[in-house]
Amino acid sequence: MSQARLELQHLSKSFGPTDVLADISLSVQPGEFVSILGPSGAGKSTILQLLTGASTPDAGQMLHDGQPLSPTQHRFAFMPQGDALMPWRRIIDNTTLGLEVQGLRREAARARVAPLFAEFGLAGFEDHYPAQLSGGMRQRAALLRTVVQQRPMLLLDEPFGALDALTRAQMQRWLAGMWTRHRWTVLLITHDVREAVLLSDRIYVLSARPARVAQEFQVPIDHPRQGAGSPGLAAIEAEILQTLLNPED
């Protein structure tokens, strides 16, 4: 097997008396779409905090391309929950945020993102404020802001959680299409089984707190996928739901 883009080995983390992560081991290969699926409060967001350097693990190792991950290196392009667009910045200036933090001048950053607006379905909305856009468009802008940073890996934290069901389904298919074209390396955190199955190559299902990897699922179906109706995906979805709803005791 080739070297993993990301490898987590036996991570554990407690906040005071609360054990949040018991034993998390997982890996993500380059160009792979991996999801972490778990019940609410299972510690999914804690894993992201460890990855983004917002907190440090009590034990275990985090390797990026074989090297230990240090909090000063920013290997990941992170997309937080909701869209986290700044209401006071126009859409184009929201999407350049990461580039500006990297030290690019505003004009140069704009020139870098402008050609991508059409592909993200945002052409003509560059100078709008986030409040003027629909929920789906805001999510696409947030994803554009994420990928334009050109980090080796994307971290998506429940990106479509705040959307209504129909928009969410549309966005999931849209993301599936985008991923098929770009083959980003993605770690997706979600509690939506259908979303995980539609998008992922592999899925790690977490146990309730303190979290450990309860089971790992492969989704051996070629991209682009036909959507949630296809029998192959439905079977895997049912199997995962079974694991989540009837945790072995």
Binding site: T52, G53, A54, H74, F76, A77, F78, M79, P80, Q81, G82, A84, M86, L97, G98, V101, Q102, Q149, L155
Partner: peptide, 23 residues
């Protein structure tokens, strides 16, 4: 300040002063 926005900037490598000014 929206915690997600602050977390986002921190993940991008923004300093504390930068986060203050930008968010």
């Amino acid at each position: 300040t929206d915690r997600n926005i602050a977390a986002l900037l921190a993940s991008m490598g923004a300093s504390r002063w930068r986060i203050f000014l930008m968010a």
